[in-house]
Structures are given as C-alpha cells and as structure tokens.
C-alpha cells in the first residue's frame, strides 16, 4: 500500500472556550495559570500574545498546541474538541496540524540540521527521498542550504532558530505556535527570523500565534492580545 500524497494541511480555525489551567503549588490551593480564557483564531490569522511573566502566555500556547490538557474548558480544532482528547489523538493532531517554535530552539543535538527538519516527516512515516527533498527545500528557503549537515552546536543562535522554523513547517501545519521566537537572538537575527516567519506564514496560509515580551515584536501582528493573571485583558480584534 503506498502512502497518500503529502499535501498542505488546510489552515485551521482554532477556538478556546473557558480555558482554565491550574497547577499544584505545594500550598493548600492550586495556582491558576489561566482563569477562563475564551479565544477564537480564524484560519490565516496572525496574532501576538503579550503580557507580564507568569501571566499565562506560555500556558495558553501549550493548551492551544495540545501539549497540555486544560483543567476546565475545551480547545476546538475545526470544531472538533481536542483539548481533553486522548494523548494519542492529540499527538496525531499535533503531527498533522501544528508547528512549534520555541524560545530555546530545542533542536535535537545528536541530529544534523537536515535530520532535525526531517523529524516530523519521519514521525509521519514519509519515504526517505521525500523527507530529504522537503528538508532541503525548507532549509534552502530559510537560507541554510549550505548548512544541511551541520549539527546544532555548529550553528549560531540565529541559524538554530531558522532550522527550528523549517522544522515547524515541515509537516505543512495549519497552525504555527511560536513562544518567544526572538528571545534568545540579537536584534538583527531576531528581525530576520520574524521576517522569515511572516513570509512563510503568508505563503502557507497557516495561522500564526506569537507569544512575546517585546512590544515591537507584538506590534507586527495583525491582532494583539494581552494576558494578565490568566485572563485576557485586551484583544485588538475580538471575534
């Protein structure tokens, strides 16, 4: 049986309803990182999430990306409740629909740049030749065609983040989630990575959610959200 052709996943409409996330604090009461968040992200949206540290930005991103399960509430992907689904189903949804970019890049240190980009495609079971071609195409797009076989420790911070962007796009996701993508980069590299991300987001039609401390980074998005104490305190374009 041959694999079906690998086509881009359609941009996703993602909706969060009354999301609550509490963590054990060690004290008598659990700490609420999110305290009832409602949010709708239409396909192709470019959204920034700002707010002070501990305001719940990363927790919201983890819940939207199905990395964690909400204590209360639900996350819907194209109308399907996924937030509290079984880990197996959430993993499948992450694999086919979500791309992650982390502040600290999180490349696998024992793999080359190309192998890191191939990772989601290997998990999808795509053939080797297709994986190589796709990884090389993406690394060319992010300007690293000469660094295919470099290991993460041989790359600069900016290069590492560009590999991470290529990896996030490898499975042609409908939703891109970036947690402080420029937090570890200098101004020039940060700018380059943001431009790249925006360009790839436009060309792929995926929704992009960027969590950031930096007002300048946040200002680039079409929609701005501010979280404080686990609640949305401002939304430039509520849906």
């Amino acid at each position: 049986m041959s694999l079906p052709p690998f086509v881009p996943h359609p941009p996703l409409a993602v909706r969060a309803e009354r999301l609550v996330k509490r963590f054990r604090s060690g004290g008598p009461e659990d700490r609420a990182a999110l305290a009832g968040v409602d949010l709708s992200i239409p396909p192709g949206a470019y959204l920034s999430v700002e707010g002070p540290s501990g305001g719940g930005k990363t927790t919201l991103l983890n819940l939207l990306g199905l990395l964690e399960t909400p204590t209360e509430g639900e996350v819907f992907f194209a109308g399907v409740p996924m937030g509290s689904a079984r880990e197996r189903d959430r993993a499948r949804r992450r694999l086919t629909g979500v791309g992650f970019i982390f502040q600290r890049f999180f490349l696998i240190p024992t793999m080359t740049a190309r192998e890191n980009v191939e990772l989601p495609l290997r998990a999808l079971g795509r053939p080797r030749a297709e994986r190589r071609a796709r990884a090389e195409e993406l690394l060319r797009e992010v300007g690293l065609s000469r660094r295919l076989e470099a290991y993460p420790h041989e790359l600069s911070g900016g290069e590492e983040q560009r590999v991470a962007v290529a990896r996030a796009l490898a499975n042609r996701p409908g939703l891109l989630l970036a947690d402080e993508p420029t937090g570890e980069l200098d101004r020039a590299n940060g700018e380059a990575v943001l431009q790249l991300l925006e360009q790839l987001q436009r060309s792929s039609g995926a929704s992009l959610v960027v969590v950031t401390h930096d007002p300048k980074v946040a200002a680039r998005a079409r929609r701005h959200l501010t979280l404080e104490d686990g609640r949305i305190v401002s939304d430039s374009a509520p849906e």
């Binding site: 880990e87 993993a91 499948r92 694999l95 086919t96 999180f106 240190p109 998990a123």
Partner: peptide, 16 residues
C-alpha cells in the same frame, strides 16, 4: 528529556 519532549510535541507516535 528535552529531545524526547520535542519529539512528542511534534507528534511522534508512542510506538516509535
């Protein structure tokens, strides 16, 4: 743990 968490975040199946 970080590499494994990245692989799982990407969606690598448990059987892999």
């Amino acid at each position: 743990r970080t590499s494994i968490a990245v692989a799982r975040a990407i969606g690598q199946p448990a059987r892999q």
